[in-house]
Amino acid sequence: MKVWVMGVGLAVMVAALAACESNATNQDAAKPAGGVTPAEMQVGEAKFTANCAACHGVRGVGTKQGPPLVHKIYEPNHHADMAFQRAAENGVRAHHWEFGNMPKIEGVTSGDVEHITRYVRWLQREAGIY
């Protein structure tokens, strides 16, 4: 009986660890309450999805290629909106995470980045970061 209980406990722990590991790429895990993006954020969401999500994850939760933007490190008092503009224009040398340097994002305008930044800030507020 003890062996069976230990086996079940181990299986539960392995399943929990697997869920945590996959959380960074799980689309549903990052959705704010209700999961609905307001109409005024949908342009930013589309631009984020097209230009940022491959590395920063759907809804900014991060991936194995890039850090989460829905994280306290990226709140406005630490990374102002202008930091997003500079990152897209020039790229960024790795300094908070070990994902490597971020390349500049070709073809993204400053207007695109404004929409993306508003969307990321909304995600951060929904997550209670600020």
Rank of each mutant, 00 (worst) to 15 (best):
R125H: 06
D28G: 14
L69S: 03
V36F: 02
R118I: 03
K47T: 00
P68F: 00
A80P: 07
P38W: 01
P76D: 11
T117Y: 04
T109Y: 01
M102F: 12
R121A: 07
Q27R: 13
R59V: 08
H115G: 00
Y119E: 06
H56G: 10
N101M: 06
A94M: 05
A50T: 04
V43L: 12
A53C: 08
N77L: 11
T25C: 01
K47R: 12
H78I: 13
R93K: 14
Y119V: 09
W122V: 09
G34T: 06
N101Q: 08
V58E: 10
W97P: 04
G9F: 12
R59M: 14
G7C: 04
R125G: 03
I73W: 02
Y130W: 06
P68A: 15
P32C: 02
E21D: 10
L123I: 10
K64R: 13
P103H: 07
G128S: 12
V43A: 14
V92K: 10
P67G: 01
V5G: 04
C20Y: 13
C52K: 04
E106F: 01
R59A: 09
A15M: 10
V43C: 02
I129M: 11
M6E: 10
V61Y: 05
G34M: 05
P67F: 08
Y119T: 08
A53M: 12
V108H: 03
P38K: 01
S22G: 12
A80C: 05
M1I: 05
V70P: 05
V108E: 00
G35Y: 02
T117R: 06
M41N: 08
D81L: 00
K2H: 04
C55R: 09
A50Y: 00
A16F: 11
H71V: 08
Q27K: 11
T109E: 07
G62H: 04
H96F: 13
G107S: 14
K2N: 06
R59E: 07
M6A: 15
A88G: 04
T117W: 03
N101R: 04
A94H: 09
K72M: 15
R125A: 11
G107L: 02
E98L: 15
A16C: 08
S22Y: 04
M13V: 12
Q42G: 07
H56A: 12
V92S: 07
E45C: 00
P103R: 03
G128H: 08
T25I: 15
G100A: 07
A87Q: 08
L123K: 13
K31D: 05
A87S: 11
H71E: 14
G57E: 07
S110V: 15
Q65R: 09
